[in-house]
């Protein structure tokens, strides 16, 4: 039985990577159809200088996040969650909280097989919910904006801070106080550093790091996990010894 289970888990992970990569690649090719259609079918040839300068601005703006986000979100999302979340977007404000809340409510160990499988279902429903809301915006967005009182529309701006407050407790309650203090202090220190970075770093360095702030902080969080685990590992083995 245990053997079967391992076999199935191995097969499952293989399939996740295979289908994850296929779907990402196909989606990537599909997204190219819109600019290709505009340029070569309709013949609206953009100035190549416009595209190049636009790409340089975009790469300077988000280029570093392309690398940092997939790495720093991986411990939470897992392989399946990574393929799904990066395809559907809106990771920080929708996918990560949903994953964390699912692990919390179902009492699953983060990073475990159970958590990964449950996360797939949570992400599917999260993605579809987002698409349905987007559909409503497309069909009736303008009407709703004019009809609804401004206070109700803008009240949704507080949804994310509320969720993040909830997440800090859900995740924070699983962490011992000394580690919690280190993590909070690290995050605040980096955020302050990034805020004042334009004063002593050239803009072409300061801008990309300020855009990648969350990812950079997360990398430090991951590094701290490695250090803390090493320390406790040594302690445990010295106890044994």
């Amino acid at each position: 039985m245990e053997n079967n289970r391992n076999q199935s888990t191995k097969q499952f992970h293989k399939s996740i990577h295979l289908w994850g990569r296929i779907t990402i690649l196909v989606a990537l090719l599909c997204t190219l159809t819109i600019p290709l259609y505009l340029t070569f079918v309709l013949g609206y040839l953009p100035n190549s200088a416009d595209i190049i300068s636009g790409m340089i601005s975009i790469a300077g703006f988000v280029g570093i996040i392309w690398f940092i986000e997939p790495i720093s979100y991986f411990p939470t999302l897992g392989p399946a969650g990574t393929y799904m979340s990066f395809l559907s977007g809106n990771i920080g404000n929708m996918r990560l909280p949903v994953i964390a809340a699912t692990q919390d409510a179902l009492e699953l160990t983060p990073g475990s097989n159970e958590a990964e499988v449950a996360g797939i279902f949570a992400l599917i429903s999260s993605t579809f919910t987002n698409l349905v809301v987007l559909g409503i915006v497309l069909v009736a967005g303008q009407v709703i904006i004019t009809v609804m009182p401004e206070a109700i529309i803008s009240s949704f701006n507080f949804a994310l801070p509320g969720i993040l407050g909830a997440m800090m407790i859900m995740m924070g309650s699983k962490i011992k106080v000394p580690n919690l203090v280190v993590l909070v202090a690290t995050a605040i220190a980096i955020m302050i550093f990034i805020r004042f970075a334009p004063n002593f770093l050239p803009a072409n360095i300061a801008t990309p790091i300020s855009v990648a702030d969350t990812g950079i902080v997360a990398i430090f969080g991951i590094l701290y996990s490695v250090i803390a685990a090493k320390k406790n590992h040594a302690k445990e083995s010295s106890k044994e010894a």
Binding site: G111, M171, G172, V184
Partner: peptide, 16 residues
Amino acid sequence: TYMSVFAPFIIFFTLG
């Protein structure tokens, strides 16, 4: 074990 709790916490804290 640490990473899968520390990483999301510090991400949520920073976003917050």
